[in-house]
């Protein structure tokens, strides 16, 4: 089985099968680049991910492993359904996977999934944050994420006004 070494920012190496790694768009490209530039077709590629630390990388690989046999999600076939793939794809395993994580870890996972181009993981992590935003007022959102308004003058009022000029459908 062809393997690949994936190394985290803090130097931890993970040995994973290339088949699994290729489910990440980024790793797939890296592996292919390595193949082209390497004379020895047997050589084991080594990929350094300088932005992702070991704890997070492990979670991403764990998620990939669990989902390695998922069919590649089709593009949203039915536009009017309005249902994203995320909703269809989120399994019980995913929920258990995310349940113990604090928000900081989830944020890092979003960045990692975005960087490594792992769509399914990006979807479920974003959905999780989304669930903390939906149905809340502006002030509640600020409190939940420790954010302060930095609008000047009537900018906030202006935004509220602009919102009224727009509708969802």
């Amino acid at each position: 089985m062809a393997l690949v070494r994936v190394i985290s920012s803090d130097g931890a190496a993970f040995l994973v099968s290339q088949r699994l790694a290729k489910r990440s768009g980024k790793l797939k490209t890296e592996i292919e680049t390595f193949r082209k530039s390497s004379d020895n077709s047997e050589a084991q590629p080594e990929i350094r991910i300088v932005t992702i630390r070991a704890e997070i990388l492990r979670l991403v690989l764990q998620w990939l492993q669990q989902h390695q046999n998922d069919p590649v999600l089709p593009a949203n076939q039915n536009e009017q359904d309005g249902r994203g793939d995320a909703e269809m794809g989120q399994s019980q395993w995913d929920r258990d996977f995310l349940a113990p994580m604090d928000l900081g870890i989830v944020m890092e996972l979003i960045l990692a999934a975005n960087h490594l181009e792992v769509k399914g993981l990006l979807d479920i992590t974003c959905k999780l944050v989304e669930s903390k935003i939906t149905g809340r007022t502006v002030d509640e959102i600020r409190t939940a994420f420790k954010l302060k308004s930095d609008f000047k003058g009537n900018e906030e009022e202006q935004t509220r006004l602009e919102n009224r000029w727009c509708v969802e459908n």
Partner: peptide, 21 residues
């Protein structure tokens, strides 16, 4: 992070988010 989350957020909630900061 914001861009990714705003892509999946229901539009009604996006209206609130625009007023946060």
């Amino acid at each position: 992070i914001l861009r990714n989350i705003f892509e999946v957020l229901p539009l009604s909630d996006l209206a609130s988010c625009r007023q946060v900061c």
